[in-house]
Amino acid sequence: MVSDKKVLNVEDLRVCFDTYRGEVQAVRGVSFDVCEGEALAIVGESGCGKSVTAHAVTRLLPEPPARITGGRINLDGTDVVNAGKKTLQGMRGSAVGMIFQDPMTSLNPTMTVGKQLREALLRHNPGMGLKDAELKAAELLSEVRIPNAAQRFSQYPSQFSGGMRQRVMIAIAIACKPKLLIADEPTTALDVTTQAQILDLLKSIQSANRMAIILITHDLSVASCLVDRVAVMYAGQIVEKGLAKQIFQTAAHPYTWGLMDSLPRPDQDKSRDLNTIAGSPPSLLSPPAECSFAPRCHFCMQVCSQRQPPGFELGPGHTCSCWLHHPMAADMLKQAKEASGHV
């Protein structure tokens, strides 16, 4: 199902924002790949840079004030960082599709849903006639499980619920059968039932079209439903990445442990408080030179507050940026695993 051919290759990506307070380094050296047909989740709390990374891949960041200051992005053969406007416009919608977080504001309120869909189709299918495009659009609406597609075609977004608008977004994003779909927190603004429906829809679309997906989310449980691989981001860097199984069963970074612990579980002892990770992420105006998680880490060592940890390879495809995995920290690692319960 998952081939070896890479659809997206991101290497050492760095993105800055110029604000009235100074330069904010939102992404500080992020590297990952996505293969054809594969689903990758990028997980992290608000402000960790996952959304910025996703937007950088399609260069949809507002380019003042954002700036890509380093790294390479190769999307299906295109060098995104250095690409010109025309190349980028050709790539968007046909090689890569994107859906965003807030479906309520993601559609043009003064244009019918059908026209917005038709627009996406006609953009990359110059030979297609209007009638054909409309038929195809209606088909797409059915594919995303919107009932009464023909009727819905001429309605305005205000006549759709949040969940349905998100489906329309998905329809627009996959209209020209892109190789990669980037979903930036697609379910955050929706209720739990709708969340499940959307995720289910994404899953079926993915397998039907052999499409790669990058799913951005702050919710680990959302990630677990759908994906093959997971990357955990914190303070603009990837702190751990690997196969879903590796992350969920043998997580190696204290932050990942914290994320997993903070998921409320039905079998938990209800009298105890919910687990949280105390403190907040560092300011990216002057990012720390040491491990960014150190101030909040229960297992912080001296070296952690002095230098950045490199990526340690723990197994095939599983890397973790934490000093605990340095050979000299073997004892500390053992203690940490026992103390946290992630053995």
Binding site: S283, P295, H298, C300, Q302, V303, S305, H326, M328, M332
Partner: peptide, 22 residues
Amino acid sequence: ALSPELFAPADSIQALEDAAQG
């Protein structure tokens, strides 16, 4: 440059720095 002492635990969980958060 990495000496074993560096891998001893930090003195305390460092201050939950917040105030200076901007």
